[in-house]
Write a protein that binds this DNA or RNA. Structure first.
Length: 781
DNA sequence: AGTCAGCGAGTTTTT
DNA sequence: CTCGCTGACT
């Protein structure tokens, strides 16, 4: 019996041992030499310079798995990523390799890591653990109040300027006092220091932190509480930081503090993909890593597994034009491949149309919609692409863009939830005290606020003392009703009610939903849909978290972006900014707006910062390297921005790509010549004066439904690329159709014009309209 | 207190 | 072009 046990024990251990050996081999088996080296370097500082598509995620996930196999307790591993999506992906992939226990690795973004730490030790900083997280909108309205309070003219000194300065100060880990001291001679910055100080004061009053505070306060916490720092240093013996080129100074400090004891710090990044300088990312964190950690091992991953040779060569050719980068040479085994397609269109409608028609073509024979992405420099560009995709019934998804949580109805309801969660949150209170209308006007709100400031209490407390507030008049009873409503909702939380029920109660008790239903417009229907969507998110949160709490929900909502919910399984074309595309890959990539002043942006071109254009170029590099099989680049000769039409040269980045990499080399050469060379003498002078010049301004009135620029643009503007052939339409007289703006209606006329169909529709809401089929967004229903 | 018209201003990227 | 704000009016 006993012997039997022994044998079993031996067998068991050898089994485990063999499994481990096998695993070790397995873990590193499909890595290349460099990747394997990075994977197996566990102790001491390590810098992995990972070029685009070089298997970076694979390497670090395998590294985590390898560490666990080597006996490192997963509990002692911290992996910091830039986005929640990257965090989830990393966790899933480690799970896949090591199975159980991987969930004990702490994988998170900088911000969510900080929130977790701060919640636990909030009181050491004078905060309550239910503190709210303010987004940019919230901050802005606080700043607005501060400016009013300090009697600073917000027209002369806009909120945005102060926000930028305060943010920059926080990223540098500068307190208001330090900031003031360092800028004593600068009039505006001295003012900014005052705003900064008062802003922080108010945030604290509201028991709220902004995004920058999350990082700042964590560093502050560690600095003043060695015991807390010790706790986390002990826990995080192995630290990995992804996208290290995007870290700012506070993040640098944070990591440095945490890693000080064990020095097992592995950072991964690519200086060529540093595209967040505008929000404080300091590229020198990665460039000078070896100076900070002289004993650091440096490993370069230079083999690209993603893109074909042509695409990679184009990317290399572009990025080569930047100074001051770490020399590296990405290479691939996939030589050749499809050549790059570039095309310049007459205007942005034709450009979008061209892209949409190519997508339609590809979807028929080569690819699924999910394999394709349209990338652009600014969110504003998405609209036209959206229109044209809609017209062709191509399913698409806009990633990022105007944040779901930034919508009015969502912010309103969230403000209720936030206020219930954190009664000090005056900002949320002000937002909803009269939403929906309950007869509490601005002057009343001002009186409550003045009283709260005077008594040094929050507005949330003040509304319970209406009888003490001077001059409140007959609004008092209304305020009390509001306070009662809040009490009722709060009690639901105290009694452990479900969050989704709380949500329903809010909508019900405030009649918020009823009002929208009564409104019965397309817009209100949209809003109702969004509210439903929010409810789904809440239910999903409850399903995913056994210990679902209101503050947990608020946190998730503050820190999770649209980007993170991007799933691979819905078959749609992805539309997003180049920034959002970082870290993703697609077989077919379209980059639109390849024009001077679009990309590189006019901001960058006008900037005194020499590096501004280089950052744009890095962005271009990021964009190009997203493509696996084929890359489409497009530009538009004319583009209407804010009502004015501009003529733009083809982007310098196009000219930086060697001609032989293009499918249509000759055409590209012709098109990428500056516009004035194509247009001839009379227009030369016009260009110099930029967009305010009458010659450049469009004389045609640009059109409500995109009809302003007709297909027959003048030959004087060089070679034409007519893209819109006559569309065939799938509806006829008598059919019901839906228009994006005008709603539903009945087709009453359909006339074939020279190039297009002229459709007459009798809309239910707005009456009869006549439009061209290729521009109207009509869908048969 | 609430609504609505008219005006001016601002437009890069986001955790 | 599209918000957002102001100020006059109901």
């Amino acid at each position: 019996m006993r012997k039997c046990c022994c044998i079993n024990a031996v067998a068991f251990f050898s089994l485990v041992f063999m499994r481990r050996i096998r695993h070790m081999r397995e873990i590193t088996a499909d890595l290349n030499d460099m990747q394997r080296e990075a994977c197996c370097h566990i102790d001491g500082p390590l810098l992995i310079l990972a070029g685009a598509g070089s298997g970076k995620t694979k390497t670090i996930t395998h590294r985590a798995a390898y560490m666990i196999e080597q006996g490192v307790n997963p509990y002692n591993i911290l992996a910091i990523t830039f986005t929640n999506k990257a965090a989830t992906e990393m966790r899933d992939r480690v799970d896949l390799i090591v199975g159980e226990n991987a969930d004990r690795i702490w994988v998170s973004t900088f911000h969510s890591m900080c929130v977790r730490i701060l919640r636990r030790f909030a009181e050491r900083l004078g905060y309550k653990d239910h503190f709210a997280i303010y987004d940019t909108d919230d901050s802005k309205s606080v700043i607005k109040d501060v400016l009013k309070y300090l009697q600073i003219d917000h027209k002369k000194y806009p909120e945005k300027m102060f926000m930028g300065m305060i943010s920059a100060a926080k990223e540098q880990y500068k307190s208001p006092d330090e900031y003031e001291r360092e800028n004593a001679t600068d009039f505006v910055k001295r003012k900014a220091a005052d705003v900064y100080r008062e802003y922080q004061h108010r945030l604290k009053k509201n028991n709220a932190m902004d995004f920058d505070d999350l990082l700042y306060k964590t560093v502050e916490l560690f600095e003043h509480n060695p015991d807390v720092l010790q706790l986390y240093q002990d826990r995080f013996r192995y630290i990995m930081v992804d996208e290290y080129q995007d870290t700012n100074h506070v993040q640098f400090l944070l990591i440095k503090m945490l890693a000080r004891q064990y020095r097992n710090l592995c950072v991964v990044g690519d200086d060529d993909q540093s595209i967040y300088k505008f929000r404080g990312a300091n590229i020198y964190n990665i460039l000078n890593f070896e100076e900070e950690y002289p004993d650091a091992r440096v490993i370069k991953l230079e083999q690209n597994y993603r893109s074909t040779g042509n695409i990679l060569n184009a990317a290399n050719a572009v990025i080569k034009n930047n100074q001051g980068r770490k020399e590296k040479a990405l290479w691939t085994e996939k030589q050749g491949g499809d050549k790059i397609r570039f095309r310049q269109y007459d205007n942005e409608y034709f450009e979008a149309e061209g892209v949409a028609s190519e997508i339609a073509r590809l979807s028929v024979k080569d690819a699924s919609y999910r394999d394709m992405a349209i990338l652009y420099r600014t969110n504003a560009q998405s609209r036209i692409f959206e229109e044209k995709l809609l017209m062709r019934n191509i399913p698409y998804k806009i990633v990022g863009g105007l944040n779901f949580y930034a919508r009015k109805e969502i912010k309103d309801v969230l403000a209720y939830l936030r206020l219930i969660n954190n009664e000090s949150d005056s900002q949320s209170l002000k937002r909803i005290i009269n939403v929906p209308k309950r007869g509490i006007g601005q002057s009343t709100v001002d009186k409550i606020e003045a009283y709260a400031v005077d008594q040094d209490i929050s507005m949330g407390d003040a509304i319970y003392r209406v009888e003490d507030i001077p001059d409140i008049g007959r609004a008092a009873s209304k305020i009390s009703l509001f306070a009662d409503l809040l009490d009722e909702l709060k009690s639901m939380v105290y009694h452990g009610g479900k969050l989704s029920n709380l949500y329903d109660s809010i909508l019900e008790r405030t009649s918020y939903m009823d009002e929208l239903i009564a409104e019965n417009t397309d817009e209100s229907k949209d809003r109702l849909e969004n509210l439903d969507e929010l409810k789904n998110k809440i239910i999903r949160y409850e399903d995913d978290n056994e210990d679902a709490t209101l503050s947990g929900l608020m946190e998730e909502i503050s820190l999770v972006s649209d980007l993170d919910s991007l799933s691979d399984d819905d078959d749609r074309v992805r539309l997003m900014t180049l920034h959002s595309a970082k870290g993703l890959e697609f077989p077919y990539v379209f980059i639109g707006g390849m024009e001077e002043r679009m990309f590189p942006s006019s901001m960058a071109l006008n900037s005194d910062d020499e590096d501004a254009v280089e950052e744009e170029r890095r962005l271009c590099y990021v964009g190009i390297t997203r493509a696996m099989n084929r890359l489409y680049l497009s530009a538009s000769k004319r583009r209407t921005i804010h009502g004015a039409t501009n003529m733009n040269d083809v982007s310098r980045f196009i000219r930086e790509i060697p001609g032989n990499l293009f499918e249509n080399m000759e055409e590209v050469k012709k098109q990428s010549k500056p516009v004035l060379a194509q247009m001839g003498e009379p227009y030369k002078n016009a260009r110099k004066y930029g967009s305010n010049n009458p010659y450049v301004k469009s004389t045609a009135s640009p059109a409500k439904s995109g009809m302003g620029i007709t297909p027959s643009s003048k030959p004087a503007f060089g070679k034409q690329f007519t893209v819109n052939r006559a569309e065939s339409v799938d509806y006829g007289v008598g059919d019901r159709v839906r228009h994006m703006k005008f709603g539903e209606g009945t087709v009453t006329g359909l006339v074939a014009g020279g190039k297009d169909y002229e459709v007459t529709v009798d809309f239910d809401r707005v009456g009869t309209k006549r439009m061209f089929a290729s521009f109207a967004k009509l869908k048969k229903i």
